[in-house]
Computed example of a mutant assay.
Amino acid sequence: MPKAPFRRAACALALMLVGASPAQAQREAQQGMPKMEPAAAPAEPDAIPLYGQATPGSAASEVWSKAGGVDYTVRNVTRPTLTPVLPDPAKATGAAVVVAPGGAFMLLAMDHEGWGVAHALAAKGIAAFVLKYRLLPTPGDEGEAGAYMMHKMMAGLPDPTRQPTLTDPEAAADGREAIKLVRANAARWGVDPARVGMIGFSAGAMTALQTVLTARPGEKPAFFGYIYGPQPRVDVPADAPPMFDALALDDPLFPSQGFPIAQGWLAARRPVEIHGYQQGSHGFGLGVPGTTTTLVMDEFVAWMAMQGMLTRR
């Protein structure tokens, strides 16, 4: 059984996954989950069904909430969508990034790790596409859902030194389809199909990684950002795309044990960059004020430029 400090860390993680800041999460972890206020589904006029007319599920299954009355989260997604957030044409670089929010495969932090990230990328001339991928089912009632998600998350994290066992193959399938959809509509959205990448946060990072590992040759993202995902080494394919790996060294969910996953990229002679921030906890999103995690998006974009992904063609 996990020790009490890890239980508190996991509880703090759960809070951050639903939109609470790391500092708020650490405070509220002692009292349980933050108040999740039911919310009407936001208007998503630009959301595109991921598989066209064949898209499974229904929007009616979705349970929307606001964490602390502020940030949108959604559960029970059965109908995946992709929402374009396009840059000013005068600033557009032609690069594109599919954005995968996190939430332990049971929830998506749509504001914190989705729309906010997409708008930050678009402001830098990068076309962004927020992926609302399919999730594992949770109870409809907020109170029941909180307890259920905590139980499932703890079961999926039996030991902080091991790879999480909580996964969802449908999320990776949606990641692969999102890359295909952006490339198929490259002319429509003004992007270069050879410069379509992905960035994911926590479970979204795991989704991005599985997209890379399971996509057929020629269909992988051109690059990807792996933001506060677990770090164990994986088998790296010879055609693996460049990886940007970022984690706070005080992450309570994935305590620092080096960066074996990045070492695997190096062993495979594939490009990789590592950022280990001194502070930031888990779920820092676009950054925790007062820490260097606030530089994560600037560094990711600078890294993209170093890979030649921002060069107009």
Rank of each mutant, 00 (worst) to 15 (best):
A4C: 08
R8Y: 10
L13Y: 10
A14I: 11
G19R: 00
S21Y: 02
A23Q: 10
E28V: 05
A29L: 07
A29T: 03
A39D: 09
P42K: 11
A47D: 00
L50N: 00
Y51K: 15
G52W: 13
S58K: 08
W64N: 08
G69V: 05
V70G: 06
V70A: 14
T73R: 01
V77T: 11
T78K: 09
D88M: 02
P89V: 04
A95I: 06
V97L: 04
G102A: 09
G103M: 05
A104N: 05
M106W: 01
A109L: 06
G116W: 06
A118M: 00
A120N: 00
A120P: 01
A120C: 11
L121R: 01
L121N: 05
A122F: 01
G125W: 00
L131I: 11
Y133T: 08
G140H: 03
E142T: 06
M153Y: 11
G156F: 02
P160T: 14
T161Q: 11
T161L: 06
R162I: 07
P164L: 08
T167C: 11
T167M: 12
D168F: 13
P169L: 12
A173D: 01
D174I: 14
K180H: 03
A186H: 03
A186P: 05
W189F: 13
V196F: 04
G197L: 01
M198Q: 04
I199F: 05
G200L: 09
F201R: 15
A203N: 09
A205K: 14
A208T: 14
A208V: 15
L209F: 10
L209T: 13
L209K: 12
T214H: 14
P217V: 13
P217C: 12
G218Y: 08
K220W: 02
R233H: 03
D235H: 12
D235F: 10
A240T: 05
A240W: 01
A248L: 01
D250T: 04
S256L: 12
S256T: 14
F259R: 12
P260E: 13
I261H: 04
A262K: 02
W265S: 09
A267E: 15
A267M: 11
R270L: 08
I274T: 15
S281T: 08
S281D: 15
S281K: 11
G283K: 06
F284T: 03
V288H: 04
P289F: 04
G290T: 13
T292Q: 09
T294V: 14
F300K: 07
F300I: 09
V301L: 02
W303V: 12
